[in-house]
Design a protein around this nucleic acid. Sequence first.
DNA 1: GTTGCGTCCTGGACGC
DNA 2: TGCGTCCAGGACGCAA
Length: 279
Amino acid sequence: MPELPEVETIRRQLEPLLRGRRLVDAWAFPHPKFTPALDAAGATVDTVSREGKYLLLGLGDGRDLVIHLGMTGSLRVRPQGEPGDPYVRAHWVLDGGGPDGTAAGAGHGAGEALEYRDVRRFGRLAVVRPGEHHGTLGVQGPDALDPALTDPAFWRALQGSRRALKTQLLSQRPIAGVGNIYADEALWRARLHPARRSVTRTQAAALLDALRAVLTEGVENGGTTLRDYRTVAGERGRNQTRLDCYGRAGEPCRRCATPLRRIVLDARSTTFCPVCQRR
DNA sequence: GTTGCGTCCTGGACGC
DNA sequence: TGCGTCCAGGACGCAA
């Protein structure tokens, strides 16, 4: 399930492949979540950016193509005419590149397409105009890796709700980009119980540090592949072998050797250490 | 406005 | 081998 590190890995790989190239044609699976792909046809990609889990392709005219990968979404650039994939939900035919030496300078040619693949169809696409917002993107908090987000600001954001700490992180409201895997990892590192409903300033600062650490390591390792996630190059991430908490229920805590416990919180599988992370 | 729950969606794991 | 059931979870809609 693509979270911030997975989306950032994809963004870094896509940028040199797409910048300066025109989306000369588009196709979309006939569902309202994917048909907005057609609105991007004819535009030229001038930026490839990310906000939380959203990937944004600047279309050169002030509009953005907003891509959310959901749980099983992925993006890849493939030669046109390769065998069909039933799980491709949209694709954009690419031209040979712009005149500024970006994609063209890298040797890309016509006959390629950007493909959006999403087996479970939890992802979504949108084209937004300047000032418009799309779903959660319009109301989510600052990006988790945004250096402008300070400890006091994060603490104040958490004070705005009495929901469980992990539920708040997954809501994207206090901070954007965190999903189930990295929430469990960060809470374990910060020694905070996922169902806590309040934190001190010190605990909030520790949690923000832990979030940034696990997300940065995730980016450095090319993301976490548990099942579906693949990079633009079709490779698996490497971070799944370095997880301390998520998915290790029943195994010993790497700090105190107590068996990690699994609970269901907010309908999400949650793993934590009952000794290190007291409520 | 906030909170909690149901829904969407399908491949894979598992039990019989 | 084949079938049925359960699980995974991000975002959104709806009711309380």
